Amino acid sequence: MTSELLDRALIEEAAKKSGLVWVRGAGAPAARALWHVWHEGAVCLVGGGPGEQPLEGLADGGSAEVTVRSKDKGGRLVTFPVTVSELASGSPEWEAAVAELKGKRLNAPDGEEMPARWARECRVLRLAPTGSLAPLPADSQAEPPVPTPATTRRPTPAGLPKLLLRRRKAR
């Protein structure tokens, strides 16, 4: 019992301090970084709509795995299994979670209209911890970046260091 309470305390403290969690839904090939809030004993997320974070692989009643990183160093602190539940729009639980999420949403395009848009277009999920902590893996589990045309891997032009050095001296 004491071990279970310590696990819950570790999960809660880590999730409260970190603004970002890595979530791998059941059957998802890789974990996805998602912003969240810790509210009433669970991780709460909003997304799935236009302009919000994607929530693929997270279905109501399903399971997932959450990894919390350190806010200051970015390293993995704790990994734990969760049960996913979708909060019904307009319910007291939904209202309470949205009030917390609204305060943490950065760069919202619609300000005070955000909760109404979330009710129409998005999903609010509650990820409640279940079971015990997963052991930390021995390897880094780093994934290669997704290929994109915006990424280039070419050598630095020979004249660039000289050009940058001249600009610094001119100041």
Rank of each mutant, 00 (worst) to 15 (best):
P29A: 04
E113Q: 11
D60Q: 14
E52P: 02
K71Q: 15
L58D: 00
G51L: 09
A42C: 05
P129V: 04
D139H: 12
E100K: 09
P137L: 09
H36Y: 14
V82H: 02
L6K: 12
L127T: 07
P149E: 06
R154V: 04
G47K: 01
H39Y: 03
G41S: 02
E4T: 12
V23T: 07
P161H: 06
E100D: 06
E100Y: 01
E12G: 08
E13D: 13
V146W: 09
E56Y: 12
G57F: 06
A15T: 12
L5S: 05
W38M: 13
P137M: 13
G25Q: 00
L125S: 04
V37D: 01
A14N: 02
P109S: 06
S89G: 02
P144R: 13
R154S: 08
E112I: 01
V37T: 12
S63K: 06
V124G: 00
E143C: 02
S85P: 09
S85Y: 04
G47F: 03
R153K: 11
T152V: 13
D7H: 11
G74N: 14
P115S: 00
R24N: 01
L77T: 12
V146N: 06
P50F: 05
G131S: 13
G49N: 01
A142Q: 01
G90Y: 07
L5A: 10
K162V: 05
S132D: 06
G131C: 13
L77Q: 15
A128G: 02
R24A: 04
S140M: 03
T148W: 00
D139A: 12
C44Y: 07
D7P: 01
E121R: 10
G19P: 00
E40L: 00
P137C: 11
C44E: 01
R24Q: 03
L45V: 10
S85V: 13
A170E: 15
G131W: 10
G19E: 03
E95I: 09
P161D: 09
L87R: 04
L34A: 13
E100G: 00
E143V: 05
L45N: 07
K71H: 14
V146K: 09
E112C: 00
M1A: 14
V21A: 14
L136F: 02
P50V: 12
K169I: 15
L127G: 05
V68P: 13
G131K: 09
T156L: 15
P157Y: 08
S85M: 11
G90M: 08
A31D: 00
D72P: 04
R171W: 11
L133A: 14
M114W: 10
R166C: 04
A138E: 12
Q53T: 11
A116E: 15
A150R: 03
L165M: 12
C122R: 11
A30F: 07
T156Y: 08
R171Q: 04
A96T: 06
